[in-house]
Design a protein around this nucleic acid. Structure first.
Lengths: 339, 339
DNA sequence: GGCTTTCGCACCTTATCGCTC
DNA sequence: GGAGCGATAAGGTGCGAAAGC
């Protein structure tokens, strides 16, 4: 075992063994079903296919890409894959990519602009045919630079400027959360609003705040705190909110993990989620329903966002004009808000 | 905007503009610092580097791969990236890969053998130089087939057969959990053991059970249940365990998310984690410390596993002999076991 | 003879044109 | 004149051999 160098099976291998020319073999192996007729005679087509199968011929993608100037590769940039939201979106992307015969390079940028730039250059260096950004900043400065270079791309999860995107209707999600808490009678409410540069947090917060304002209950800025989208961020944010007077009776966290952190912070102060403090999260992560105190949350179609994002990119790469999509969120009522 | 076709900058572009031969340019642009002297004269080296910089020359990786038969690509197969454990391992892999100038294809196999096969073929079709499996079954049947084809690969997270792997010392982790619970006086204990085909769950359970046995307290098979590695699995597993008599006073779940599910199941039966029922998890996911009832757990070096896994693969691809690594776990004591 | 540079081909595939019966 | 196939070139890079000074 060890150094068994099987020479790779190439078009020439097949051609030589069949006494045909490589170009003939290429044409046949590549012909789409509908145009198969012109490639060669029935009999030769059969012979070629059979041998290719037997020898396990696999076209060399580097040679193909070199020749066709298409890599069938797409780059995917996300803040972090260890955030289950982005990981789930990526699963949707990957599923759609597989269906289109595309492969993906996915990379974490940690929401750090320098890393975003560096990793984008890296995937472009790999000659991807298109890009998907899950880490867009609301000011689309960086993205405009990419657009100017003529590389097709779409955004998922977060929107920015007029670039094509597939997002949850986050504003509407914020409204749903507000309407739910309003219906429960909460009038002193606070928001753990996420990072200030992400449209997700911005839009969810805006939808929430606007709905409360429209109901005649303004939410003062002091009751809106910005934090990272994770449990630790939620805990820190809630700790600030829970020192205010009067104490809020409800907290809307723009992310399930932040909501979990908020519940922990509440508990440290002797407040029980669901009875003493209503908590609403966002995304309906699988964990939400399984928590000791199940979490009321706004479900966002994460997998679908990824799936549709890649589909949109495919159309964009084909030269079509495309439009952004906003997918509808759903309210999931559980014990963390109803006791 | 739209159709601005800048002709790509190739070696020939540079060569023509400098009045040199492409091969000269090629030699200079990849001479390593130490052998730079031999590539060309100081002056030409300078001229070439300068122009390459100005025009933003990026070598075409397809051409390079075609020529060198090296793609600088590695394939990574994991059960699911939406499992934060694997996602974090992947972050380590990616970090190390970037340092080595490698790019990764990562793909979810959902622990389904047919998908594992299909995705493996797909990445091999992309001509990866090596593979990392995070989804190994304990019976190494499939992997032996890959090994026979001469493709270098390493395992991370899970071990299997004698294939090189980087894992947590899961057996030791199980011991730590057992010693902790023994020291707290728990003698009626149960295990949520994860999937029966994964070495992680198997070894953690074995370390736990062996330690209890050695202490004169055997853990009967009826108190060990196999479930998926997630919150839902943990809940279902714990529900089974909590119908037994006598009721266990402690549960060891081989995964933090399963532990969270177990805590939820306990709560549904009126048992409070930490006081009525001790719960110990595994991995020390970031969430563990932030939970309303912080989770006692065994910390495993997830990021490092990935980082070292890729480093090991690099050495393997260089033809070195490598040995498997087991990284030490650490006990993190929190309220879910101590009240 | 050593340093610098050029030449030519190979890697594998595909697109287009052209030949032959 | 059309069906079936071959010939040729190109895509960008890298390596060995050989040439220039």
């Amino acid at each position: 075992m060890g150094s068994e160098h099987k020479p790779p099976v190439t078009l020439r291998t097949l051609a030589d063994q069949l006494g045909l020319h490589v170009s003939t073999v290429s044409r046949v192996l590549h012909a789409k079903p509908d145009e198969g007729a012109r490639a060669a005679s029935e009999a030769t087509v059969e012979r070629i296919r059979k041998l290719a199968d037997e020898l396990g011929y696999r076209p060399n993608p580097h040679a193909t890409s070199l020749r066709t100037r298409r890599s069938n590769l797409v780059g995917v940039l996300v803040p972090r894959l260890s955030d289950i939201v982005l990981a789930t979106i990526y699963e949707g992307i990957e599923e759609a990519a597989a269906e289109h015969g595309l492969s993906t390079f996915v990379t974490n940028t940690r929401d750090v602009p320098d890393v975003q730039r560096a990793r984008t250059e890296m995937v472009l260096g790999r000659r991807v045919d298109g890009l998907i950004f899950g880490d867009a900043y609301i000011d689309a400065e960086f993205l405009s630079g990419i657009a100017a270079r003529g590389v097709p791309f779409v955004l998922v999860s977060r929107r920015a400027g007029e670039h094509p995107s597939v997002t949850c209707d986050d504003y509407q999600g914020g409204r749903l959360a507000a309407e739910h808490l309003l219906s429960l009678g909460h009038r002193t409410v606070a928001v753990v609003a996420g990072e200030p540069y992400a449209s997700t947090g911005i839009d969810r917060t805006a939808g929430f705040v606007d709905t409360y304002r429209d109901a005649g209950v303004p939410v003062p800025g002091s009751r809106i705190v910005h934090t990272p989208f994770d449990a630790r961020g939620g805990r820190l944010g809630a700790e600030k909110l829970l020192t205010q007077h009067p104490l809020p009776s409800a907290i809307f966290a723009v992310n399930d993990f932040a909501a979990i952190g908020a519940i922990g912070a509440a508990r440290d102060r002797g407040l029980r989620a669901g009875t003493d403090l209503a908590v609403v999260g966002f995304n309906d992560t699988p964990l939400a329903a399984e928590l000791p105190i199940p979490l009321t949350t706004i479900r966002s179609p994460m997998h679908e966002m990824g799936y549709r994002g890649l589909s949109l990119l495919v159309r964009l790469m084909a030269g079509e004009d495309v439009e952004s999509q906003r997918l509808a969120p759903t309210l999931m009522v559980r014990a963390s808000s109803t006791g």
